[in-house]
Amino acid sequence: MALLEIEDLHVCYGRVEVLHGISLQVDEGEIVTLLGANGAGKSTTLMSISRLVNAKSGTIRFDGKDLGKYQSHEVVGLGIAQSPEGRRVFGTMTVEENLRLGAFLVNNEAQKESTLRWIFELFPRLEERREQLAGTLSGGEQQMLAMGRALMAQPRLLLLDEPSLGLAPLLVKSIFQTIRRISENGVTVLLVEQNARAALKLANRGYVLEVGNVVMQDTAQALLANPSVREAYLGG
């Protein structure tokens, strides 16, 4: 059984349908990437999993549980955390306060502290800036904070929405390395990316979304070699 299983998911904003019945699976321990052009529906898919957007029909199952029966805060409790598009850190709060909010549902103080230490290992920059207001961090630092904050929930499944957006190439490389380390720590990752080449090099498998439909799915290697993927997403 897959850890995450989406079946025939339809989502509407108002009367406009933006996901026309997509299906995808993520197995425990995998890194799966979701590729697609602007407006394809990638963020909508992640927001549906986190239950910030309601599905019109279809099912999302996590660890066998129908997420349609849960509210957004309960989904976090089940083990799904998201680092959303645009980072959305709490700008007038400190780095540490942001991180601790990520662990809002974690009751075990010792676990909280050890996760915090792990996150400071992954992102030493965050430890240096512990007391700084999140809104005054650079874009790259905010991205680290958004990822660290999601990890504080000790998720089994981590949803990452465009973690490399707007970052300098060197930092992109380091963010992707960090995602690998997170994955090696046993966290399953669903990664939405514009940076298709880097994402496919990192991922086990990938899905390609086009205007609300999954048009391709394969192993990352096969997608990297696929001519139409190369043309559309890898710059030829």
Partner: peptide, 13 residues
């Protein structure tokens, strides 16, 4: 600050 982000933290708004 951000209701949506708060929900992603597991906060029951």
């Amino acid at each position: 600050i951000d209701q949506g982000a708060a929900r992603l933290m597991g906060i029951n708004v």
